[in-house]
């Protein structure tokens, strides 16, 4: 188990709504806004909004995470944008 997986939910929570750079195994790097960290697998979910492109959601598996560096805090506008991704409009996905 790596250091990232050993963190407490209170630690992971501090990354939410922040722009981070995730360094993963095999020299992969991912940059995006943190939507959540799964407390079971330590998988970190990032939203990216590249210009002139559709945004994407990226799930970096906890076991692959080597380092997470905070680059920037989110402002109110970004927080709203991120909240929109989590809005319960997709709750239909739970019904079988």
């Amino acid at each position: 188990m790596n250091d990232w997986q050993r963190k407490s939910p209170l630690d992971w929570e501090t990354y939410v709504n922040k722009l981070v750079k995730v360094v993963a195994v095999e020299k992969h790097e991912y940059e995006g806004w943190v939507l959540t960290v799964d407390p079971v697998s330590a998988t970190i979910v990032l939203a990216t909004f590249p210009e002139n492109e559709k945004g994407s959601l990226s799930f970096v598996m906890g076991h692959a995470v080597q380092k997470v560096e905070i680059l920037r805090e989110g402002d109110g506008e970004m927080e709203q944008r991120l909240a929109g991704i989590l809005a319960p409009q997709e709750s239909h996905a739970y019904s079988p």
Binding site: P9, P39, A93
Partner: peptide, 19 residues
């Protein structure tokens, strides 16, 4: 507080995954 944070993070994750 830890339980609350864990639940919040887990709920977000499950929502995103199911979406």
């Amino acid at each position: 507080a830890v339980q609350k944070a864990r639940a919040e993070l887990r709920e977000r994750f499950l929502r995103l995954l199911s979406g």
